[in-house]
C-alpha cells in the first residue's frame, strides 16, 4: 500500500501547495501550527476540497480535479483520528467501536474487534459510556473505532495534543504497536519534535502551506 498527494488550495488568507508520497509505516507531517497540516488531512478525508490536484491511495483515486473524481468521505476508507476523541456520547464504547466495522464491506475488512481491543487494551471498557472514560482511554477507543472500519490509510491529527504528559506516555506505546503491525500508511500530524523522533520513519516538514523538507 502506498499513498500520494499533490494538491493546491487558494484562499484570500491562506494558500497551500503540497505534494508528497507516503509508504506503509508512520510518516510525520511536522511543522508549526497554522502551517496547513490539518488542511492536508481534511483534503484527504474529503472534508475540504482542493482547488486543484490529485489524491490516491494504493492506485485508487480519491480526488482528481482533472478527471473530476471526488469521492465522498464515506467512500474513501480513510481512518481519521482527531485531537479530541469525538466518541459518540449516546453509544457505549462497544457501539462506538463497531460503528465503522458494521459499515465496512466484508471483503475489505482486515481488522477484527477482538484483536483491535487487545492491541489497544480496551477490551474491558466495552460496556462503558464514553463520558466515564479518561482522556487516554477515550483516545484509544477512538483509534480502535477508526481501525475497525478497516481503512486503507490512517490520519492522526495531533492525537496526543489534548492529553497531559502521563497520558501521552500511556498512548505512545499503542501507536508504536499500530505502526509496527499495520501495513497501511499512517499520516501523523504534530508540532512536537519528541513525538516525531520516537514514532516517525519519514518526516515531511510543512511551513506556510509548503513542503520544506523530506527526510
Amino acid at each position: 500500500m502506498s499513498f500520494d498527494i499533490d494538491v493546491e488550495v487558494r484562499r484570500s488568507d491562506f494558500a497551500l501547495k503540497v505534494a508528497f508520497e507516503a509508504a506503509p509505516g508512520l510518516t510525520a507531517l511536522f511543522g508549526p501550527s497554522g502551517a496547513g497540516k490539518t488542511s492536508i488531512l481534511n483534503m484527504i478525508a474529503g472534508v475540504l476540497k482542493p482547488a486543484r490536484g490529485r489524491i490516491a491511495v494504493d492506485g485508487q483515486v480519491l480526488f482528481d480535479s482533472e478527471t473530476r473524481v471526488d469521492l465522498k468521505s464515506e467512500h474513501r476508507r480513510v481512518g481519521y483520528i482527531f485531537q479530541d476523541a469525538r466518541l459518540f456520547p449516546h453509544m457505549s464504547v462497544g457501539g462506538n467501536l463497531l460503528y465503522g466495522y458494521r459499515l465496512a464491506s466484508k471483503a475489505g475488512r482486515y481488522a477484527e474487534p477482538d484483536h483491535v481491543m487487545n492491541l489497544l487494551g480496551i477490551a474491558g471498557l466495552v460496556e462503558r459510556r464514553p463520558a466515564s472514560l479518561s482522556g487516554g482511554e477515550q483516545q484509544r477507543v477512538a483509534i480502535g473505532r477508526a481501525l475497525l472500519s478497516s481503512p486503507r490509510l490512517l490520519l492522526m491529527d495531533e492525537p496526543l495534543a489534548a492529553l497531559d504528559d502521563a497520558r501521552k506516555l500511556e498512548i505512545l506505546p499503542y501507536i508504536e504497536r499500530l505502526r509496527d503491525e499495520l501495513r497501511i500508511p499512517i499520516l501523523y500530524v504534530t508540532h512536537a519534535r519528541a513525538e516525531v523522533e520516537r514514532l516517525a520513519a519519514a518526516v515531511i516538514g510543512i511551513e506556510n502551506g509548503r513542503v520544506t523538507s523530506l527526510t
Binding site: 474529503g46 476508507r77 481519521y80 459518540f88 460503528y99 465503522g100 459499515l103 472500519s149
Partner: peptide, 27 residues
C-alpha cells in the same frame, strides 16, 4: 449537536442519511 461528530461518522463510512439517523436525530 456537535457537527464534528457527524464528520467522524462520515469518515467511518456512514452516508448522509445514516449519519442523520444514527447521530443527529438521536442526539
Amino acid at each position: 449537536v456537535d457537527r464534528r461528530l457527524e464528520l467522524a461518522a462520515r469518515t467511518l463510512g456512514a452516508g448522509w442519511w445514516r449519519t442523520f439517523l444514527t447521530i443527529t436525530l438521536p442526539l
